[in-house]
């Protein structure tokens, strides 16, 4: 394990932010700390980096107890949501900072910074100042700066949170490719489940300062520990007192085994998928079906249908609390 967090507690004043948090991060993996705002994920990341001290518990990085080490001795790369660019230094000097602190020879610094700027596609911006860059460029500079010191782990705190939707999507695909290239153990914080599932090898879902579930993204999606995990990771609807994924629901015009009678209340066509809103036993529910299925069934508002959880559905159903 690259990072082992054990029994960490942390409060700000009388407000507990982390309660008995234990997390393992695999070497070389890209792990997402996912959860709603205020769930403690950024604090956990800062505890790992040494920017916050835990009230109790331990943090081991590459097998070494780092709990009491100052941030500058942990050899972690940290990327901040708002870039934290050194605004009085050029892009080149920003990236070189960690190497200059380590008193590496000038020729080595120049070579290494060139390499990193190429890696993040900023080689032609070496002499610019941060305020002359766009948000996405600044964040790539920050990433190169963090990678320059060859950190044991790379920590990213909502790295794309301050960027607009399109740049965000581009950068997360790029981050995944970059990680496949450099293989440094990476932990990133996000509140966006789509981003986490798309980019990460492992997920740690944190809410109210506790780990709700950790594991591979598909495991959390298909086999959630509770209703919170299930509804946080993807769309859910209710059927027969259970939470199910709407794409796991099967509709038919004729009665089927285990089929529950329902009435179509609305049919919404969203591009390739069709959202069928239903009334089942006086309760509202909805199913996601393909356009073909919808056309075959000839669904219209007011039509009676039978609905059941598809026998082939991968995802579990969880008793609604």
């Amino acid at each position: 394990m690259a990072i082992e967090v054990r029994g960490v507690n942390k409060s700000f004043g009388s407000t507990p932010v982390l309660s008995d948090v234990s997390v393992d991060v695999r070497s070389g993996a890209l792990t997402a700390l996912l959860g709603p705002s205020g769930g403690g994920k950024s604090t956990l990341l800062r505890v790992i980096a040494g920017l916050e001290q835990p009230d109790s518990g331990t943090v081991r990085i590459s097998g070494v107890d780092a709990t009491r080490l100052s941030p500058q001795r942990r050899n972690v790369g940290f990327v901040f949501q708002h870039y934290a660019a050194f605004k009085h230094l050029t892009v080149f000097r920003n990236v070189a900072f960690g190497l200059e602190i380590r008193k590496r020879p000038g020729a080595e610094i120049r070579r290494r910074v060139r390499e990193l700027l190429e890696l993040v596609h900023l080689e032609q911006f070496a002499d610019r100042y941060p305020h002359q860059l766009s948000g996405g460029q600044r964040q790539r500079m920050a990433l190169a700066r963090a990678l320059a010191v060859e950190p044991e782990v790379l920590l990213l705190d909502e790295p794309f949170g301050a960027l607009d939707a399109q740049v965000r999507r581009e950068l997360r695909t790029w981050l995944r490719r970059l990680h496949d290239e450099v293989h440094v153990t990476t932990v990133f914080v996000t509140h966006d489940q789509e981003e986490a599932i798309e980019v990460a090898d492992d997920l740690v879902l944190l809410a109210d300062g506790r780990v709700k579930q950790a594991g591979r993204p598909h495991v959390l999606y298909d086999d959630p520990a509770d209703t919170f995990v299930m509804s946080f990771l993807g769309p859910v609807t209710r059927l027969d007192g259970q939470l199910v994924r709407p794409h796991d629901l099967e509709l038919s015009v004729d009665p089927v085994p285990a089929g529950v009678p329902a009435t179509v209340s609305r049919v919404v066509r969203l591009g390739f998928e069709v959202r069928v809103e239903l009334v089942v036993d006086g309760q509202e529910a909805y199913a996601q079906v393909t356009r073909r299925t919808a056309d075959r069934l000839g669904l219209d508002p007011g039509a009676p249908v039978y609905v059941r959880r598809s026998p082939e559905a991968r995802g579990a159903a969880v008793a609604a609390g």
């Binding site: 980096a49 040494g50 920017l51 100052s70 941030p71 500058q72 001795r73 942990r74 050899n75 972690v76 790369g77 940290f78 901040f80 708002h82 870039y83 934290a84 660019a85 050194f86 605004k87 900072f97 960690g98 602190i101 380590r102 920050a142 700066r145 963090a146 320059a148 010191v149």
Partner: peptide
């Protein structure tokens, strides 16, 4: 954040 970034870079 600039100061924290510098610290995590070893300063």
């Amino acid at each position: 954040d600039m100061e924290e970034a510098a610290a995590s870079l070893g300063a």
